[in-house]
């Protein structure tokens, strides 16, 4: 079930966000129990100088860190934040997150395309977080994004894959990996995203605010694996009526 993203072979299709975790101490345990290989870290939260737990102390070297630009309000800010983050962490994986709306944390697709074009040219692996829109996804593919990360529902809502009709065409038409980000509030949502054909999912809130983040990470990881396996196996369409056991047109023979 290995797959490739930004030139890297990965086994785990679950990416985990760290921003809302109650403590970074759970990170090594989550990695151990789930085999997660990619974690996202918000540049705006990195503060190695503070005398509190420093996230970087809890992330082993073999983990790929994707820094995100949350807090950026336009392409220009996102590029600055991305570069600052890349420098501190030493990563080339950048999640472009430009939210020009604090009420919904809705991504600004237009600015995201702009930032992606520029950062790709400068040699970064760019993972743009977008409102699911096929045309935007295609533009991002053309500009060399490493993947697209459309939202399943707005950040923090835990509503699941409510944007299905908009996600399906992206998964079908775009030839770079599709990572469904945001909205996954429980394991069944993650399974649903994978059954839909997403290459991976990114989960933050559901794990972070669970009573036991490690257990929730394990549960979601299992769901991701189940959903993927089912997808590769070919999922039968749901039907309103039963399939007759002998063909209805048999009498023509």
């Amino acid at each position: 079930m290995e797959f490739e993203i930004a030139g890297k072979k990965l086994k785990s299709r679950l990416f985990i966000g760290t921003g809302k975790l109650p403590t970074y101490k759970v990170i090594p345990e989550i990695i151990k129990k789930t085999g997660v290989e990619v974690l996202t870290v918000a540049v705006r939260r990195i503060n190695p100088e503070a005398k509190i737990e420093n996230i970087l102390d809890y992330i082993p070297d073999n983990i790929t860190i994707m820094v995100n630009t949350s807090g950026a309000r336009n392409a220009e800010e996102a590029i600055k934040i991305a570069k600052a983050g890349s420098e501190i962490i030493g990563t080339k994986w950048i999640k472009i997150e430009i939210e020009a709306d604090t009420r919904y944390l809705a991504p600004d697709n237009e600015e995201t395309v702009k930032a992606t074009e520029i950062l790709v040219k400068q040699g970064f692996f760019v993972f743009p977080y977008i409102t699911p829109d096929l045309i935007t996804a295609k533009k991002l593919e053309k500009s060399g994004a490493a993947a697209v990360m459309p939202l399943g529902s707005f950040i923090g809502t835990n509503k699941g894959i409510t944007c299905k009709t908009l996600l399906r065409p992206i998964i079908e038409e775009v030839n770079i990996p599709v990572i469904i980000d945001a909205g996954i509030g429980r394991p069944s949502h993650a399974a649903e995203a994978m059954e839909l054909g997403a290459d991976a999912v990114l989960v933050n809130t559901a794990i972070a605010i669970a009573k036991n983040p490690v257990n929730m990470a394990i549960a979601i990881d299992m769901a991701v694996k189940a959903g993927r396996l089912a997808f590769e196996n070919g999922i039968l369409a749901e039907r309103e009526y039963a399939e007759p056991s002998s063909p209805l047109t048999d009498f023509l023979k």
């Binding site: 705006r44 939260r45 503060n47 503070a50 737990e53 600052a84």
Partner: peptide, 13 residues
Amino acid sequence: KGYRPEFTNWVKI
């Protein structure tokens, strides 16, 4: 209380 204190909410750029 089960929460994580943070000191940083913005990137110095």
